[in-house]
Design a protein around this nucleic acid. Structure first.
Lengths: 105, 105
DNA sequence: ATCGAAGTTTGACAGCGATCGTACTTATGC
DNA sequence: GCATAAGTACGATCGCTGTCAAACTTCGAT
């Protein structure tokens, strides 16, 4: 294992894929938590109520859609929001979801 | 039949509902076609490759999410995009989907 | 009054995806 | 080396949703 998993380039971002990733509340919560943090967050440190195997699945979906970047630090996998790249391809999309009004709804 | 179906008010818009509506390609196509048109479009006039009953289902999902408004004109049901209202509650969301770059992806 | 056009409703079906437990892998620390 | 911690991989379920056909409703036109 251990190696860096595959990430799509920004030029390959697909709207359908990204929306499918964002429609799940757990995944959207992950995005929101990343957006609110100044630092990378390791998989186990998120506030989500699902099992580890389910969490792995969600991170994979987010990564393959291009929304997050993952790299290993020891046995932990760190997650970064690919804000700038997503914003460039789909301007306004993440803002619409991370706005206060959006989070309350 | 004939009467105007129920529509949620803008104050009741729910992000989860709206994303679930927008994640389907057929429904997103309906939104895109409405956005590109200056006038209301009747259900039968959309360029979508699904049966009538499936189309009815999609319009219902869009309407109940608050994305479109529907009213009868004769036997036809006219559809309007609730642009301003959606923009006010979730600014940038529809723009992100109706942009040229988004449509090409 | 009849017919056709436009949608709706209902029921059925198929496929996908979120979920979990279990077993496995990899790295760190003692 | 061994135990533990952090994730991953693999099946198996199970519910949801997109799809359609068929029967029905409503309105408009003839």
């Amino acid at each position: 294992m251990g190696r860096t998993p595959p990430h799509p380039e920004a030029s390959q971002f697909d709207l359908q894929r990204i929306l499918e990733a964002l429609v799940d509340p757990v995944r959207r919560s992950i995005i929101t938590q990343l957006d609110a943090s100044d630092e990378d967050i390791k998989c186990g440190a998120f506030d989500i109520q699902v099992s580890k195997s389910t969490a792995t699945h969600h991170f994979k979906v987010l990564r393959e859609a291009g929304l997050i970047r993952q790299h290993y630090v020891g046995t932990s996998r760190m997650n970064t929001l690919r804000r700038a790249e997503v914003d460039e391809v789909f301007p306004g999309l993440l803002d619409a979801l991370t706005t206060h009004r959006a989070k309350e709804r």
